[in-house]
Write a protein that binds this DNA or RNA. Structure first.
Lengths: 183, 183
DNA sequence: AAACAGTGCGACAATCTGACACATCCATGA
DNA sequence: TCATGGATGTGTCAGATTGTCGCACTGTTT
């Protein structure tokens, strides 16, 4: 990690070691200082000696969700720009993250350019594209499940009961990745 | 319930007339003053003589998207609580809406209770913990399918394509009864 | 008439779900 | 500290559902 004091500091918090390594190198090559953490807990340690200007956070990790880091990061540096980057993207977690102050939200897979683009430009424009097809039933189910899960603070058992679904079945669904819509 | 100047004003912007009517009546019955607009343009006219405290906006309508109304609504009443409610939900529009100041974002179908629950979030209402059971995934799927089917004039093949579902599977689902909720 | 798109349904393999069964954890209270 | 109850992570397995293919039939269009 090069320590040019002028470079912007970029923190990557993600489970997936391979992903982190690749992204870190790509970001680094573009002139940022980078730091990597494999969990929210580990990220907190990193923050003792690294105050990031930009960050990407994963949601689904062992231990705490990356979303819990948002307040900490903002407290440390109110100017920080935070991008949520997850393979388990859903509308409810996106809404929550933005409300907490995240700058933007992207579903994996996403390439380095997309990531940096989202972090650089973040002027809200009311002309976002609106999908022309409705959600697939699979996607709708995923979104609904995520919403209810959020309302129950991530409690799987309670969510399964609320949905009238077997807990085993819900767990199996949660392990899978959400359906990708090909808009 | 009194319907005088004390009642909160609720604006519904949606191009689905049936949906608006049903929602309007339900909201009305709960003691709000309601106004309905079938498009963003129409909504602007309504705003000349109706300053809402709460609003639901649809995204996909003829003309401008409901998202463009957010700044106007907030300018008119900074305290307004805005809920985006759409059948064409997506993460990118959700992110935009929240950034622009929407309070929350829900995918249709959603029932009146859910809608009000999301909008009432800020009110010091003591009934926050009343966890009304959400729709089951089966029920949600049924409603969604019916809606898309209607949009395609009952064309099963087209509906199956739009939903990314196999025609055979859709036919089988349509033969079954709607899922009954046993609250 | 030939070409087409939509519909209804049979059949079969691949998947998924519901039901049980355990084996940890963790917080609470006796 | 131990007992108790809830939550969670998995494994198994029979039965239900879905993905595919195929085929006959029916309007529509050219």
């Amino acid at each position: 990690m090069d320590t040019n004091s002028k470079a912007l500091r970029f923190l990557i918090v993600d489970d997936d070691e391979t992903f982190s390594r690749v992204l870190s190198r790509a970001i680094n090559r573009r002139g940022y200082d980078t730091a990597v953490a494999g969990s929210a807990e580990q990220a907190l340690e990193v923050l003792n000696e690294f105050t990031p200007d930009l960050a990407t956070l994963d949601l689904k990790m062992d231990g705490a969700s990356g979303i819990t880091l948002i307040p900490r990061l903002k407290a440390l540096n109110p100017e920080i720009r935070i991008l949520i980057l997850t393979g388990y993207a859903s509308i409810s977690t996106a809404v929550e993250a933005i409300k907490l102050g995240a700058t933007d939200y992207l579903a994996k897979p996403a390439d380095t350019d997309q990531i940096l683009a989202k972090l650089k430009g973040a002027e809200p424009d009311p002309d976002v594209e609106i999908a022309d097809k409705p959600m697939s039933v699979g996607r709708l189910e995923w979104e609904h499940i995520q919403k209810v899960l959020t309302e129950h603070d991530g409690n799987v058992s309670a969510t399964a009961r609320a949905l009238g679904m077997h807990r085993r079945t819900l767990q199996r669904k949660l392990q899978k990745r959400p359906v990708r819509e090909e808009h």
